[in-house]
């Protein structure tokens, strides 16, 4: 039971960490390598607004998310827009921005274990005989909520449908009056907000550190490669696969192996099915 519940928590955490990366890539075909930095930056801004400026906690979180949305939009509007269609440049540029953000935060004082944001609700409860803190329950509910929101967003709203259209065939979408640059800036911005949401849900469990930013990027890549890059179904399945594999490793082998499992799965998937569980080889070819 404990394995099952913590497996679900861990899988949901992975979904929260990576869904923003998948959304931005799915719509705009931009691999946003500053994803992990945006995740940490949101947590840090929430800390600044809450602990340093003394704002109410939920207002601080809201402001931090708003801030990160603007950062995402600016990232596209001022940098990535010039590099569209050149994946290597997109990767280098966004990774560079991520490095700059993270190392700036380190310089600005994000060192050691001192900086943290509190959970939404303190305390623990028992679920099916397993002791679980409220924050982890919130993570499960929040993850499900975000997945449902994204499903409805892409199925029933005009912007969501436009996202889907651009992701499948940009030229056909353009011919129907959908502005691909506007869709892309929205997608990158939304991806940033989702990264930030992941941050505010997950960071209360530990400390806000620069290293965590790099780790989140690696997890985002692992989930994307295992699940098939840009595929939503892939994100969910890969998160559960990696999530449970990690929990089982921690339980039966050793806890410091949990990071290696994700990397091992990348290699296995690349050997067995290079396009990922739900990826399409065709898309990869078109990209090249």
């Amino acid at each position: 039971m404990e394995l099952l519940i913590y497996g679900i928590v861990n899988s949901m955490s992975l979904i929260l960490m990576t869904i923003g990366f998948a959304l931005a890539y799915g719509v705009s075909r931009i691999p946003n390598f500053s994803h992990g930095a945006l995740y940490i930056l949101t947590g840090y801004m929430a800390y600044v607004f809450f602990a340093m400026l003394g704002l109410p906690y939920f207002l601080a979180i809201l402001l931090a998310l708003l801030f990160i949305g603007l950062v995402g939009a600016a990232l596209y509007q001022f940098i990535l827009i010039h590099l569209r269609g050149m994946p290597i440049s997109e990767i280098i540029a966004s990774f560079g921005v991520g490095l700059a953000i993270l190392e700036f935060l380190r310089w600005a004082g994000l060192r050691g274990m001192a900086i943290t944001i509190p959970p939404f609700i303190r305390g623990t409860t028992t679920v099916f005989g397993v002791i679980l803190d409220y924050q982890r329950i919130i993570i499960i509910l929040g993850g499900i909520g975000i997945l449902f929101f994204l499903y409805f967003f892409t199925s029933y709203t005009k912007t969501g449908l436009a996202f889907k259209a651009i992701a499948q065939n940009e030229r056909a979408a353009l011919a129907l009056g959908i502005d691909s640059d506007r869709a892309a800036v929205l997608a990158v911005s939304m991806g940033a907000v989702l990264a930030g949401l992941g941050g505010v849900f997950l960071l209360p469990l530990g400390n806000i550190t620069v290293e965590m930013g790099y780790e989140v990027l690696i997890f985002a890549l692992a989930v994307s490669i295992v699940g098939g890059i840009g595929s939503w179904k892939g994100v969910v399945y890969a998160s559960f696969l990696i999530g449970f594999a990690q929990i089982l490793t921690v339980r039966y082998i050793a806890s410091h192996w949990h990071f290696v499992v994700a990397l091992l799965l990348i290699i296995i998937v690349l050997i067995v099915k290079p396009s990922g569980l739900y990826g399409k080889q065709k898309e990869l070819e078109e990209r090249v």
């Binding site: 199925s155 005009k158 449908l161 436009a162 889907k164 259209a165 499948q168 065939n169 030229r171 056909a172 979408a173 011919a175 129907l176 009056g177 959908i178």
Partner: peptide
């Protein structure tokens, strides 16, 4: 001015209804 492109270019992973809905973007 609406173009129906060469080789149809439907959105292959969307349902037919969703294709039509996307068409109604404007």
């Amino acid at each position: 001015i609406i173009l129906c492109p060469e080789r149809r270019q439907v959105f292959p992973e969307s349902t037919a209804l969703e294709n039509l809905k996307i068409g109604g973007y404007l």
